[in-house]
């Protein structure tokens, strides 16, 4: 790295009397989870490369409340939501980008009713727009011709009908995209949603992520691409369980683009 990347906070922008083009909502996984932090860093590098003036909330960000809401704790969810909305509105945030479909869904769909209305984008949508505006260029590079299957996050594809943006980015990477039988709006959950990430599964004969990993393995991929930090964890665990980690990588699309650009 030639130059250290600066990640300014909203507070710093505010102190200079400026406002950024977009707020990067990092999310709890992206902030704390070691695997997900790599996605965060890759995305930040892409933002920097494209010359996007962005900011994060830093320590002023808190959980959107998604896991609390899907666990049934509407109180806790709304407490989180109102706290976050106060911060966001205080900074007069207009546009938010996030690499987490759960944060995306919650802020885009559930915050407006509580007083927080913003333009919210998933990072794959934002990257796509950067490319189409010519601010970011992507070439196949190391992924050209690789067999890749994309696991649709439920809260992106089915819940919000966004399944083209990630695929368009994969097309830019010139990969060979092989779809699983269950994809796009018929995708199969990784097993993390609905706060399942934070509890033991109920009794059954298999874990959901193992089932999904088997479906992915049927496509004989070199890489499983993901667009959600939780899916990423679930699929990575699945691949480890199948002892395939030396052959198959689980990567976020942002990580793939960053790696293709040698960032």
């Amino acid at each position: 790295m030639a130059e250290a990347i600066k990640v300014p906070t909203m507070a710093e922008f505010m102190a200079q009397g400026k406002s950024p083009e977009v707020l990067f909502w990092v999310g709890c996984a992206g902030s704390f989870d070691d695997r997900a932090k790599k996605i965060t860093k890759a995305f930040v590098k892409l933002l920097a490369k494209a010359g996007v003036e962005f900011a994060v909330l830093g320590t002023e960000e808190s959980c959107t409340g998604d896991p609390a809401k899907r666990a049934g704790n509407e109180f806790l969810f709304q407490m989180q939501a109102v706290t976050n909305i106060e911060v966001l509105n205080g900074y007069e945030v207009k546009k938010i980008v996030t690499a987490c479909p759960h944060c995306f869904n919650t802020i885009a769909n559930e915050y407006p009713g509580l007083g927080g209305t913003y333009e919210v984008l998933h990072h794959t949508q934002f990257l796509k727009s950067l490319i189409s505006e010519g601010r970011l260029t992507v070439e196949g590079g190391k992924y050209k011709g690789k067999r890749i299957t994309f696991h649709d996050p439920c809260y992106l594809a089915r819940a919000n009908r966004i399944y083209e943006a990630p695929r368009d980015l994969l097309a830019k990477l010139e990969v060979e995209l092989v779809e699983m039988k269950r994809c796009k709006t018929n995708g199969f959950c990784c097993g993390a949603g609905g706060a399942q990430m934070f509890k033991e599964p109920e009794p059954g004969n298999k874990d959901v992520n193992i089932e999904r990993t088997e479906q992915a393995l049927e496509t004989k991929p070199d890489i499983i691409a993901a667009g959600c930090p939780f899916c990423n964890t679930m699929m990575t665990d699945g691949i480890k369980n199948k002892e395939k980690e030396s052959e198959i990588e689980v990567l976020d699309i942002a990580e793939m683009i960053a790696a293709a650009e040698d960032l």
Binding site: A4, I5, V7, T9, V26, C28, G30, S31, F32, D33, K37, T40, K41, V44, K45, V56, G58, T59, E61, S62, C63, G65, P67, A68, A71, N73, L76, M79, Q80, A195, M197, F198, K199, E200
Partner: peptide, 30 residues
């Protein structure tokens, strides 16, 4: 387990027992 996650959200704004003040630590790791 879910109760633990929810207590974490309530106390440190994330479903895991991390300190809220460490939320931006990743910035220094780039």
């Amino acid at each position: 387990d879910l109760n633990n996650a929810m207590t974490n959200i309530e106390n440190n704004a994330a479903p895991w027992p991390f300190n809220q003040m460490d939320r931006a630590n990743w910035i220094n790791e780039i």
